[in-house]
Computed example of a mutant assay.
Amino acid sequence: MIRFEAVSKRFPGAPGLAVDHLDLTVPEGRTCVLIGPSGCGKSTTLRMVNRLIEPDSGRIAVGGSDIRAADPIALRRRIGYVLQGVGLFPHYSVGRNVATVPELLGWPAKRIAERVDAMLDLVGLDPALYRDRRPASLSGGQRQRVGVARALAADPPVLLMDEPFGAVDPVARARLQEEIGAILKRLAKTVILVTHDIDEAMRMGDLVAVMRDGRLLQADAPAELLAAPADPFVAAFVGRDRALRRLALLRAGDVARPAPDASGPGIPPEMSLRDALALMLAEGTDRARVTGGAEPAILTLEAIRAAAAVEDPAG
């Protein structure tokens, strides 16, 4: 768990606080996405966790321990860090880049070699093909995968990701978000991720925290944030099409109701409501049969419409 308690930061010469009395808890094994306009304090917040930036006041605890009690270098070796542009050492091979932290920790060579291959395999890069290559020979998406492998190599419980997919082309970005997000969930890492991309935030976050002018405006699960934004700024920031974004997060199995005699086109329970709606409209039907669950179920247009309902924060 990562906990911020009344954390503030002001940079010399700045007219206001970069981070203003932030209270936020990131549950263990969950991904919290910090999002907001440029200059809102999200990257400053992230970099205070590994003490690349020191807070002026308040308390940050990782795993229940105040980070001020830890040696900064030792702390950073226990926290994975992935940033935009990756920051791989160009004169090192891919394998040597991934081995960076285990080498600093003094792991035996055999253990390091096994870990490097395991991490490359984890992020979808065949060790035999990529271990000895240099970063310059890789695509942007491949370099980003190596960056994630390096951050995970020493098995840190906490991972910080600062605009990790910002330098990746749009075609590869969505696939990387899905694949890396699934890996982090499977490994049960506690993650703070900074992005300016609302779709990325909704796709990867268990918790989405919206910031503005150094202050936290709302922190909620993606579906709840889309359904009930705390104020007009949050509603405008997450977009006018937030009802459709909410449907992309919800699954057919979440809202279908048992119906032994269900009819209509068959869909799997994991299909998103947005995809289910598109299929039903294409088929000209107001219902679909949800298959593959414990018992037959039916999904109706009325149920989708209710799930898409969002509140107007302006009243």
Rank of each mutant, 00 (worst) to 15 (best):
M1S: 14
I2N: 00
R3C: 11
V7C: 02
V7A: 01
S8K: 01
S8F: 04
S8P: 10
P12H: 07
P12V: 10
P12D: 00
A14V: 13
L17H: 03
L17Q: 02
A18S: 13
V19F: 05
V19A: 08
H21T: 13
D23L: 12
D23K: 12
L24T: 12
T25G: 00
P27F: 00
T31E: 01
C32W: 03
C32T: 15
I35V: 15
S38F: 12
S43R: 02
T44E: 07
R47S: 07
N50Q: 07
I53V: 13
I53E: 15
S57Q: 13
R59Y: 06
R59V: 15
A61W: 07
G63E: 05
G64A: 06
S65G: 05
I67N: 06
R68Q: 07
R68V: 13
R68N: 02
L75F: 04
L75S: 06
L75H: 11
R76L: 11
R77K: 13
Q84E: 02
G85C: 03
V86C: 08
P90Y: 03
V94D: 02
R96Y: 04
V98F: 03
L104D: 01
R111Q: 13
A113P: 11
V116K: 01
D121Y: 03
V123Y: 03
A128V: 14
A128D: 12
A128Q: 14
R131G: 01
R134Q: 03
A136E: 04
A136Y: 04
S137A: 12
G140A: 05
V146A: 01
G147H: 10
A149R: 01
R150T: 14
A153T: 09
D155W: 06
P156R: 07
P156D: 02
P156M: 01
V158T: 05
M161K: 02
E163F: 02
D169C: 09
V171P: 14
V171N: 09
A172M: 15
A174R: 14
L176P: 14
E179I: 14
I183Y: 01
L184W: 08
L184V: 09
L187N: 00
T190A: 03
L193R: 07
T195C: 05
R203T: 12
V208L: 04
V208W: 06
A209T: 11
R212L: 13
D213Q: 13
L216C: 06
L216T: 04
A219C: 12
A221E: 11
A221N: 08
E224Y: 10
E224D: 08
A230Q: 09
A230V: 15
V238H: 02
G239S: 06
L247C: 00
A252H: 07
G253D: 00
V255W: 05
V255N: 00
R257I: 15
A259M: 09
A259C: 15
A259V: 10
P260W: 01
P260V: 05
D261S: 10
A262Y: 00
S263W: 07
G264M: 13
I267N: 06
I267G: 07
P269Y: 09
E270R: 13
D275W: 01
A276T: 12
A278K: 11
A278H: 09
L279I: 13
L279T: 10
L281K: 10
A282S: 03
T285L: 15
A294P: 14
A297Y: 03
L299I: 14
L299K: 05
L301C: 08
E302L: 08
R305D: 07
R305F: 11
A306D: 09
A307P: 13
V310T: 14
E311Q: 11
D312V: 10
A314M: 14
G315L: 14
